[in-house]
Design a protein around this nucleic acid. Structure first.
Lengths: 229, 229
DNA sequence: CCTCTTGTTTTTGTATGCAAAAATTGAATG
DNA sequence: CATTCAATTTTTGCATACAAAAACAAGAGG
């Protein structure tokens, strides 16, 4: 996704809804009425529609013709697929990184780990969550592959959406030292260990999500002043 | 992507432009003026915009704010990224298939190979091309993973777009027996051989594309009666 | 001959309006 | 009390209209 310097209206709506979904102001299953959103953002329905279509392409929003849009409410099957895909991709990423032994990139990763530690020390839970997710994206960035990175971000967004649907304090899926250990494995070129750890890591997250996925199922709410603009 | 039974207007435009790009009626670099397309399809610019946005999400179309859209003209870097990504994914797919040893799925693949043979015997070049591409998608289908499949299709579309930009008779990248050999490797669970063959296979395609990529570079045409509706 | 300016034309971005489809309400009936 | 059906309201799909930005073209000045 190239940077569009000019902040266009539909981008504002897109970002706003995107944030609202991340913030869990908008939860899976909620209806996204065009008129309501248009009023919320003080824009026309046209722009809202464009933004929603983009969100749908990202998989964060589902739609049906003549019915409208909702925040995606993933089926168990979708969650499974998504994490299987993540596993497949991340194994590929880690394998390639092991092959390359790009020490500069790994140095970057270590700096990221410092940030994680800092957040953990300061008990900045919000920031820690964000950084833990960011770690996986930075791993993808290290490949220097815009095509893969672009799509991987979307994949992570969807996974985050599902995580965000969980009960409040279930985000502890990333255990303290796993990220560090992964980096060490990669630096050592220990491909098998890196892959195994990756699988374990993702399986833990998936399990947490699937467990609490049943809890929400189709609770549609009217959408009120949930979005801070 | 769930089937939308109801054929909506923007979908018609989307499909039309999509086809036109596959048909090579629309070539990389061509401008996609909203007004022209609207006239071509006898729809409003609104619908055209929506369709274009969707195509942009697929990576087939690029846009810049206040400038408009054109058929994606990939840089060498993008082509490289795309095929590196394809390699990463297809290795993952093949690895997983080797692990599963799903003989039913492999039987399906063999039936597909028969179709390829038939087309080759009949010298139905057009159909052969199509089937050769379809092979890779069927491989992904065998995983039973809608999330991955959905994205993989888009990836293949982009690769096809680049291939389609080539000179007419350069599509011979898929050598005769490689698909068969791959299936045999998978059935035998010979993971290493399958991976190696996959890499070789993709590298051949990529090389062909990169070689002739320089030839087109930024030849903008006016868009005339290129799309049959 | 090239470059810069400026006025015109074209094209995009967004809002509004209208028709068609879906959801909702409420009364009538079993 | 539940159910069905019709009238009403709401919501979506699409086209049109207008404002703003960019592309273009012609002429002035170097």
């Amino acid at each position: 996704m190239a940077d569009k310097k000019l902040e266009t209206t539909v981008d504002r709506v897109y970002q706003g809804v995107y944030q609202a979904i991340s913030n869990r102001s908008l939860r899976p299953g909620m209806k996204l009425g065009e008129a309501s959103l248009a009023e919320l953002f003080n824009v026309s329905r046209t722009s809202v529609r464009a933004a929603l279509k983009q969100l749908e392409a990202d998989g964060l929003v589902s739609s049906e013709p003549n019915k409208g849009c909702w925040v995606s409410l993933p089926s168990d099957e979708e969650i499974r697929s998504l994490f299987e895909t993540r596993r497949l991709i991340e194994i590929g990423i880690v394998t390639e990184l092991c092959r390359r032994r790009d020490s500069a990139a790994m140095q970057d990763m270590r700096e990221h780990l410092l940030l994680e530690e800092e957040a953990r020390r300061n008990h900045d839970h919000q920031r820690l969550i964000h950084l833990l997710g960011e770690f996986h994206i930075k791993l993808a960035e290290a490949l220097n592959n815009p095509v893969l990175l672009d799509w991987f971000r979307k994949l992570i967004s969807r996974a985050s959406l599902y995580v965000a649907a969980l009960d409040d304090e279930r985000h502890d899926a990333c255990r303290d030292d796993e990220h560090l250990r992964l980096i060490e494995f990669i630096e050592a070129g220990n491909q098998n260990a890196a892959i195994e750890l990756t699988c374990f890591h993702l399986a833990a997250i998936e399990t947490a999500i699937v467990e609490s996925a049943g809890k929400l199922k189709a609770n549609y709410h009217p959408l009120k002043h949930l979005i801070e603009t």
